[in-house]
């Protein structure tokens, strides 16, 4: 076996760092999907018929939407309806997490009109 060159060592370290970040993102993804699955089950138990079931197809389509499918070589029948997870769920529930702010007639900055906290310059 040959020794590392300096450039190879740098790139190897970069690769490992990126791989570590991938692992962390996988963990975060699984946690979020588990939480979503649990909440969806609770919705079904409450008798809410429109509750989106945690389907593989929907999550795989979201992976397509985020451009991950080629990197993971995922297989899915149709990508035509690929949506982000939040868009797909909000559509399924006909529910928006934040209602849009009421239109204001008073003058002010855009963020103030939208009811958002202003950032100091």
């Amino acid at each position: 076996m040959s020794a590392w060159t300096a450039e190879q060592a740098v790139k190897g370290a970069e690769l490992l760092k990126a791989a570590d970040r991938v692992d962390r993102a996988f963990v975060a993804l699984r946690l979020a999907l588990k939480r979503r699955e649990k909440a969806a089950r609770e919705l079904r138990d409450l008798g809410y018929s429109a509750a989106p079931l945690p389907s593989k197809r929907e999550v795989t389509l979201a992976a397509y939407r985020h451009g991950i499918a080629p990197l993971l070589r995922l297989e899915c029948m149709s990508q035509r309806h690929a949506r982000s997870m939040v868009a797909a769920d909000a559509l399924a529930l006909s529910f928006l997490p934040v209602s849009p702010p009421a239109p204001s007639t008073t003058r002010g900055t855009r963020s103030r009109r939208a009811g958002l906290p202003e950032v100091a310059a």
Binding site: R21, A32, A90
Partner: peptide
């Protein structure tokens, strides 16, 4: 809670793509 979890999944997907 469903929508919040989905939003977190989207963030994780985005981070995953950057890392991959």
């Amino acid at each position: 809670r469903v929508v919040e979890a989905s939003a977190k999944a989207d963030v994780a997907f985005a981070a995953l793509r950057v890392a991959l």
